[in-house]
């Protein structure tokens, strides 16, 4: 019972990055528990995926061929059956949108304590995870009790597994009851339209610090004066102040400009997922502890309503 079972993820025929990251996280943990690392590959082109996932450190890969795309009923039942078969100490799952759609059900069904969105894991006879609270303002160490546990890990916290492994790949037979009352009917791409911010070289991005819709005019003036492209964090789009195609982040666009100027944006992990690849990140924020400063190259700790007018002045 010292093994680790890590669950991989794919969408529309492609493995997602986090699949390689759960290998690294799972391997580190298995080294500490002294067990083997098992991977679960569920639905889709499992044979091709399994070959791809056979990286250094993987001991066993179990494929469950049932359906094409993600379906939480299939995932929950497959993991439940694998858990019964392998009796692993820890199940590691991605803290992705689909992870959030099945991991809590897995934990509930198997009666496992669940720690989500781990950014670190330590094992010393028992499992302790590091996780953030209050929008990344604090970090906590959380002991996860019980003999067996379930954890979801945050994306891009562990490096992707590399190299070529020699895992034993086998098909795992499980009877899945697909008579469930939820049916995926399709996919839809959102955020299209006239501008593509992912092509921009200079992005001025505005967050909740702007407070009121009327104040956006100030940012528009800056955008005009500097010939930049306007983008934003999610709340601005949620409020309907800017269209969806301006949103940067996990559920918006991924941008890689030469300069990303983040104004009144705290730097939540889901936002950072969309802009950390910018060459230069500049932050303007009143809070010196805002997480955005951790990834910024330049910063102003100050009030945007004072700084932005001065900045416009510089370019007019």
């Amino acid at each position: 019972m010292s093994d680790v079972l890590a669950v991989t993820e794919h969408r529309r025929g492609e493995l997602r990055d986090v699949s390689y990251e759960v290998i690294t996280a799972g391997r580190e943990l298995a080294d500490a528990t002294g067990g083997d690392l098992h991977l679960a590959v569920i639905s889709g082109d499992t044979e091709r995926f399994a070959e791809d996932l056979d990286r250094e450190g993987v001991d066993y890969i179990h494929t469950v061929s049932d359906g094409e795309e993600f379906n939480h009923d299939v995932y929950v039942q497959a993991i439940e059956a694998l858990h019964a078969e392998l009796d692993p100490e820890v199940v590691v799952m991605p803290n992705s949108v689909n992870g959030l759609d099945y991991a809590p059900a897995v934990a509930n069904r198997l009666d496992l304590p669940l720690a989500t969105d781990a950014v670190g894991m330590e094992y010393d006879g028992g499992l302790t995870v590091t996780r953030e609270m209050y929008g990344s303002k604090v970090e906590t160490a959380v002991e996860v009790g019980g003999d067996q546990q379930a954890v979801t890990v945050r994306g891009a916290e562990w490096p992707a597994a590399e190299g070529v492994g020699d895992a034993e790949i086998s098909a795992f037979d499980v009877d899945i009851d697909t008579d469930a009352g939820s049916t995926v009917t399709g996919f839809e791409e959102v955020g299209g339209g006239d501008v593509d911010i992912s092509e921009a070289d200079f992005i001025v991005s505005i967050g909740r610090g702007i407070e009121e819709e009327e104040n956006l005019d100030l940012i528009r003036d800056l955008v005009e004066a500097t010939d930049a492209t306007l983008a934003s964090s999610r709340p601005i789009v949620d409020n309907g102040w800017l269209p969806k195609n301006r949103q940067v982040g996990q559920s918006g666009k991924v941008v890689t400009p030469t300069v990303y100027l983040a104004i009144g944006i705290s730097g939540a992990v889901q936002h950072v997922a969309g802009m950390k690849g910018a060459d230069n990140i500049i932050a303007v924020n009143t809070d010196p502890n805002a997480p955005i400063f951790d990834i910024a190259d330049y910063g102003i700790v100050g009030d945007l309503f004072e700084v932005v007018p001065e900045l416009i002045e510089q370019f007019s």
């Binding site: 969408r11 949108v97 689909n98 939820s182 009917t185 839809e188 959102v190 969806k244 559920s251 918006g252």
Partner: peptide, 11 residues
């Protein structure tokens, strides 16, 4: 709402 501007439609 999935990642990367993709939404899954489900009944």
């Amino acid at each position: 709402e999935l990642e990367g501007g993709v939404e899954e439609l489900t009944d």
